[in-house]
Nucleic acid binder design. Structure first.
Lengths: 296, 296
DNA sequence: GACCATTGATAGAGAACTTCTATCAAGTCA
DNA sequence: TGACTTGATAGAAGTTCTCTATCAATGGTC
C-alpha cells in the first residue's frame, strides 16, 4: 500500500507514468499496475486518462494529500528508528535559493561538526520550487525568504537579514560612490536573476518603488552567471551584501550599498510542518535557532 | 507495511501474539513473522521477548505512536473515498459509558434519519476503556464525561448536563421525600456501579464531600443490574436524573433529586483528534453540536 | 495527409513473498 | 514432575509482484 502511495505521489509530481516509474525505480508497467490497484482498492478513479496523463480527479487530489501525509509519517518513523540505532546519520536534502547558497555553510558547518555522520545534498532552487519540493517530500528542509511571499504549511526559523549592494566593474559606474539609489540602477546595463526567482522580484519591486523600471540586458538563474557578466561583460548587478562583498574582493569589483530605501529581507530555514519532525530536521532547526541568536 | 503496523497495534493492545493474530484474522505464525519483519525493516527491536510477550521496548513504544497515526490516516483515507463513492455509509463504532447508554438514542436517531446508510455498533465501556479504544482505533467515537478526569488527545463536543437522583422501592426509604442529601445515602443499602466506572467515582466523591462514605451492598458494571436490585432486592441506587425518572415511571419506583450539593456533570461526544476526521465522525460531531444547541 | 515518436495499457513468464499447517522448545503452574 | 501455554521454526502451497515484449492511440512534423 505505502509503495503504491509513493508511486502516486511521483506520478502527480512528474505528471508522466514513465518518469514517475523511473523515479520510483520500477518499470512503467509496474507503476501503471500500482496506480490501477490503488484505484481499485479505494474504489475511485484517481487519474484522468486519455492516451496520456491528464491530471488528477478531485478524489485523486484528496488522496494525494493523504498520501503525502502517510508517506511522510512512514519515512519519519524509519528515520527516527535509524537515529535510535546509530545516532543522527543519513542524508539531509536542503533546497536553497541561489542568493543564499553562499551562506548555508554557516548552517551546515557547525551542524556537521556536531553531527559528523550526516551528509548534505544541496539543491539550488527558486523559492516556489523549494516549497513544492517540501510538499512532494523531495527535500527535507529549505532556505528561502520568510517575509515576502506566502509560505504555506511550513515551520520556519529565521537565519539572518539580507541587505543589497550594486556590483559593477572596478573603476566603472560605481567608482567613488559610497552608495547608490535603487532608481539609479536603471541607468546601468543590468544582469539580474530571472523573474521566477524571488530575489529578482524583490529587486524589481524596490526599483519600482523608487520610480524606476528593471530592464536588464541579461537574465540568468545563477549568481555565477551574473558575476561573470560583471567581470567579463562589463554589466552591473544587484546582490545580497555578503555575496557582493565576497565577489567584490575576489574579483576586484566595486560594490556599494543600495539605499533609498535601505531594503532588508529576512532569510530563514523552512521545514515541513510535521509533528514530530525527523530527528535530523529537528536538529537542523535547533542549529538555525542557535545561529540566529549568535547573529543578533 | 501497513498491515504489519496493524498487527503491531493489535499485539501492543492484546499483549498476546495468538490473540493479536486472531484479531487480525491471520494465524499466529503469520503475526510472529510480521512483527519480526517490522523489526528487521526498522532495524530495531520492538518487543521484549522471553518465551512470552513481555511488553514493548522504548523504540516499540515510539513505533506504536507512529503506527496508530499511519493506520488511522490510511483508514480515514479509505473512509473518505468510500464516502465519495457512495455517500455516508458503513459502520460507526461508538463506545459509551453505561449511564449514558439510554441517551445516545437522542444522538443516533436524528443522525440515522439524516444518514440512513450508516449503521451503529455501540459498546458499553468505562470511560478509561473508551479512551483506550479510541487510541487503538477500535472505536470511532465515544460518549463520556468531559469535565471530571483528563481526556487526553481527543476532540470533544458537549451533549448535556447530568444531574443525579436516588432511586428506591416505592413507599420505601424515599416515600414522601422531595429531595435527599448525598450524606443521607449512606443510611440506605446501596447498589452502585463498580469503581472502574467514572459515575461511581463521582458518586463516591460527592458523598465524601458531604461527609459520608459510599459503602455499597452490591456493585455491578451494568445499570440494569442496579435497577433490578432496586425493584427485586429492595436496595437503593443513584442514577442520572433521566435514567432515574425513566425507571421510576416504568418500575413504579421512588426517584428524588440528590441535593446538598446539587451536583452536575457534563457529558459529551469525544473523537480522536485528527485532521481531517473521517466523514462519518465529522457528521456525528455536527449532530452533537446541533443537539447541544437544542438542549440549551 | 503520411509518418514517426511518445505515451500508457496489456499479456505472459518467472521471481519473490505470504500464509498456512504441523511441529518444537521453553517456560509456567499445579 | 507433568500438563499446559506461548511463541518460534520449517516446509509446502498459493498469491502477488515485477519484468520483458508488444500493442493501440494520439499528436506533432514535414
Amino acid at each position: 500500500m505505502i509503495d503504491k502511495l509513493e508511486m502516486f505521489i511521483a506520478l502527480a509530481h512528474t505528471r508522466h507514468f514513465g518518469r514517475a516509474a523511473e523515479e520510483c525505480g520500477v518499470t512503467q508497467p509496474t507503476l501503471s499496475a500500482g496506480i490501477k490497484q490503488l484505484e481499485e482498492q479505494l474504489g475511485v478513479m484517481l487519474v484522468w486518462r486519455g492516451t496520456r496523463y491528464q491530471g488528477l480527479t478531485p478524489e485523486g487530489q484528496r488522496v494525494l494529500d493523504w498520501a503525502r501525509r502517510i508517506v511522510a509519517d512512514t519515512r519519519a518513523m524509519r528515520e527516527e528508528m535509524r537515529t535510535a540505532r546509530q545516532g543522527l546519520s543519513g542524508v539531509l536534502r536542503l533546497a536553497v535559493i541561489p542568493t543564499a547558497l553562499s551562506t548555508v555553510t554557516a548552517l551546515t558547518t557547525p551542524f556537521r561538526a556536531r553531527h559528523p555522520d550526516i551528509r548534505f545534498r544541496i539543491f539550488s532552487r527558486s523559492s516556489a520550487e523549494i516549497l513544492a519540493m517540501l510538499e512532494d517530500l523531495e527535500a527535507d528542509a529549505g532556505v528561502t525568504y520568510l517575509d515576502s511571499e506566502p509560505l504555506g504549511r511550513v515551520r520556519a526559523a529565521p537565519l539572518y537579514r539580507e541587505r543589497y549592494m550594486a556590483l559593477a566593474p572596478a573603476g566603472g559606474a560605481l567608482a567613488g560612490r559610497e552608495s547608490l539609489g535603487w532608481a539609479e540602477l536603471s541607468a546601468l546595463p543590468l544582469a539580474l536573476l530571472t523573474p521566477d526567482m524571488q530575489n529578482r522580484r524583490l529587486v524589481s519591486q524596490h526599483m519600482a518603488e523608487a520610480g524606476a523600471e528593471a530592464d536588464p540586458v541579461l537574465e540568468a538563474n545563477s549568481v555565477i552567471t551574473l558575476v561573470t557578466h560583471v567581470t567579463e561583460g562589463g554589466l552591473a548587478t544587484v546582490l545580497p551584501s555578503r555575496l557582493a562583498e565576497l565577489f567584490g574582493r575576489m574579483g576586484g569589483l566595486d560594490a556599494v550599498p543600495l539605499v533609498a530605501p535601505e531594503a532588508e529581507h529576512l532569510i530563514g530555514l523552512v521545514a515541513p510542518e510535521r509533528d514530530p519532525a525527523t530527528p535530523a530536521v529537528a536538529a537542523l532547526m535547533r542549529e538555525a535557532q542557535r545561529l540566529a541568536e549568535a547573529e543578533v
